[in-house]
């Protein structure tokens, strides 16, 4: 247990400062901006709309389709080539799977709800920020949802389980595990789980328990963003 004080001085279960806003893209049916530390994400929802090509249509329900993209200047090093890398496609896939459990599109057969994510600035935890932003945008778009989804990464840095790793921790010169997690607010069921690194089963369970608490903080920020948009209107 060498990693005791975190690089930026946070407590082990402390998240970076968060900010969120709903309804930031007028053209979209729903949208959001979500910021955690130096990672920022825009999410836009379009639909339900016609789905092409037709063979992708499902006559029983509408489908959800995510697209994830880091802006070329958003990486901490050299410019990132635009376009859909294999990494971006994989993230889009796990994002869709993480949001699907709460979204109910049975009233919109054969249609698609598109979610587009763009990140202008990143400092680790991008897929979690993307999911948290997407959930706000979906709710803002009035898509029927049984629950909210919130997401945060838990990790293990040199033997210590910590919440919301930043890039300096992800690249810490020791064994580091990164575990992005998304959860349903009410049941605390897990809808996104990935892991890279080395971790014992005990520590993995510990990480998920930490996620349960950490995710509540993300949830509060998401709900506040949604209520703020409409409360302002109400006054």
């Amino acid at each position: 247990m060498v990693y005791k004080t975190r690089n930026d001085g946070r407590k082990i279960d402390e998240l970076r400062p968060m900010e969120a806003k709903a309804g930031v893209i007028p053209n979209a049916d729903g949208s959001a901006y979500f910021k955690i530390g130096k990672t920022t994400a825009f999410a836009a929802v379009y639909g339900p709309r016609e789905l092409h090509p037709r063979f992708l249509q499902n006559p029983k329900t509408g489908i959800l389709r995510c697209s994830y993209s880091m802006m070329p200047f958003s990486g901490s090093g050299e410019r990132i080539r635009p376009g859909h890398s294999r990494r971006a496609q994989e993230i889009a896939l796990v994002m869709t799977a993480s949001l699907n459990p709460v979204v109910d599109l049975t009233a919109f057969p054969n249609s698609v709800v598109d979610i587009f994510i763009e990140l202008p600035q990143t400092d680790a935890g991008t897929r979690c920020a993307a999911i948290s932003a997407a959930a706000i945008a979906l709710a803002d778009a009035g898509i029927p949802m049984k629950d909210m989804i919130s997401s945060v990464a838990i990790g293990q840095v040199d033997g210590t389980v910590v919440a919301d790793l930043d890039y300096s921790e992800e690249s810490y010169p020791a064994i580091v595990s990164d575990i992005p997690i998304a959860m349903l607010h009410n049941s605390k069921e897990i809808s996104l789980l990935q892991m890279d690194g080395e971790i014992s089963k005990e520590d993995l369970i510990k990480a998920m328990e930490m996620a349960k608490v950490a995710i509540e903080q993300v949830y509060k920020v998401q709900v506040q963003a949604l209520k703020e948009k409409y409360q302002k209107v109400k006054q």
């Binding site: 049916d29 639909g47 339900p48 803002d140 778009a141 009035g142 029927p144």
Partner: peptide, 26 residues
């Protein structure tokens, strides 16, 4: 009883209802 949309609440008798603030036309 839980809401499944972003909406505002209205009560009529014992029924509790959420009225969507946005969302697709059906």
């Amino acid at each position: 009883i839980l809401s499944e949309v972003l909406g505002f609440v209205t009560l009529s008798g014992r029924a509790i209802k959420a009225n969507p603030l946005s969302g697709p036309y059906r």
